[in-house]
Computed example of a mutant assay.
Amino acid sequence: MTKIGYARVSTTDQDCSLQEEALRRAGCDVIRSEKRSGTSTRGREELDTVLSFIRPGDVLVVTKIDRLARSLSDLLKIVEAVREKGAALQATDQPVDTASAAGKAFLQMLGVFAEFETNLRRERQMEGIESAKARGVYQGRPAKIDGEEIKRLKAQGVGASEIAKRLKIARASVYRVLADATTSASEQGVAQ
């Protein structure tokens, strides 16, 4: 049996060293770490690596379940991938061991709470943004696309690809601005 540790932090200014030390103390022979958000499994190359080389009888070890996933559906997919390989999942700081029925039940409860916490954080963030907008503090991200400049260049006969290249924007954005301008002009003509 090989114990394979997986450590994850969300941002580049965070450090995996505490998790890695706990995984070493838990007897992990291999430890993979990465700095990626846990809200999705996309782009988590170290997790993909662990799931690809885990073998029957191995144990995937994390410090806490939220290091694996922040949504119940992602957590269950990871747990199923581990189970299909004939391996088990354990957490050093939580009573999770998928080799037992109680450990499986606790794992699912933790997954529900991790997802709940993520949703609460998202709601608080949106409330903060709305509050800042109401106070006139938050204006949102400044527009990167200068619609007037696009129209001016188009009027000079510059093509959409060249406009996109000059303004360092996507060609689809150029087409969208030009289409909106055409729609607005035709609506104004109908209104008169």
Score class of each variant (00 low, 15 high):
162 E>P: 08
177 V>G: 13
18 L>E: 15
18 L>K: 12
14 Q>E: 14
159 G>D: 10
17 S>K: 09
52 S>I: 01
54 I>W: 01
74 D>S: 07
57 G>M: 05
83 R>V: 04
48 D>A: 14
135 R>L: 11
162 E>I: 07
174 V>I: 06
137 V>K: 04
25 R>Y: 12
88 A>D: 12
184 S>F: 02
171 R>T: 15
102 A>K: 15
67 R>A: 03
184 S>H: 04
119 N>V: 13
154 K>S: 13
167 L>Y: 04
76 L>V: 09
54 I>F: 08
139 Q>L: 09
143 A>W: 03
179 A>N: 15
31 I>C: 01
167 L>C: 06
74 D>C: 10
165 K>S: 14
56 P>C: 00
46 E>W: 03
152 R>C: 00
10 S>K: 05
185 A>Y: 05
54 I>H: 02
111 G>K: 13
164 A>L: 05
186 S>A: 12
122 R>H: 11
44 R>D: 01
80 E>V: 01
123 E>Q: 13
132 A>V: 03
16 C>E: 10
173 S>T: 11
79 V>T: 10
9 V>P: 02
148 E>M: 00
121 R>L: 15
133 K>E: 10
3 K>D: 09
98 T>V: 04
152 R>D: 01
123 E>P: 07
182 T>F: 05
21 E>W: 09
93 D>M: 14
155 A>M: 02
32 R>P: 00
49 T>E: 07
92 T>Y: 02
45 E>Y: 11
39 T>I: 04
15 D>T: 06
77 K>M: 05
181 A>C: 08
163 I>G: 08
136 G>K: 06
91 A>W: 00
169 I>V: 09
4 I>R: 12
118 T>Y: 13
92 T>V: 15
160 A>T: 07
14 Q>W: 12
94 Q>M: 11
147 G>N: 01
117 E>C: 03
151 K>A: 03
35 K>C: 13
136 G>T: 03
34 E>N: 04
135 R>F: 07
155 A>W: 08
78 I>C: 03
188 Q>E: 15
125 Q>C: 13
15 D>L: 06
102 A>R: 15
71 S>A: 06
67 R>Q: 07
130 E>M: 11
92 T>D: 01
150 I>V: 07
75 L>G: 07
113 F>P: 06
115 E>C: 06
145 I>D: 01
88 A>H: 11
4 I>A: 10
115 E>Q: 11
66 D>S: 08
21 E>G: 06
31 I>Y: 02
63 T>H: 03
118 T>P: 00
93 D>H: 08
64 K>E: 11
190 V>E: 15
57 G>R: 00
16 C>R: 08
160 A>G: 07
61 V>P: 10
86 G>E: 02
178 L>D: 09
155 A>P: 05
171 R>G: 14
71 S>V: 05
148 E>R: 04
63 T>Q: 10
107 L>T: 15
77 K>H: 11
136 G>E: 07
185 A>I: 07
163 I>Q: 11
179 A>S: 15
140 G>K: 10
64 K>Y: 00
61 V>L: 03
88 A>S: 14
102 A>P: 06
32 R>C: 01
158 V>N: 01
97 D>P: 10
150 I>M: 00
119 N>H: 13
183 T>M: 12
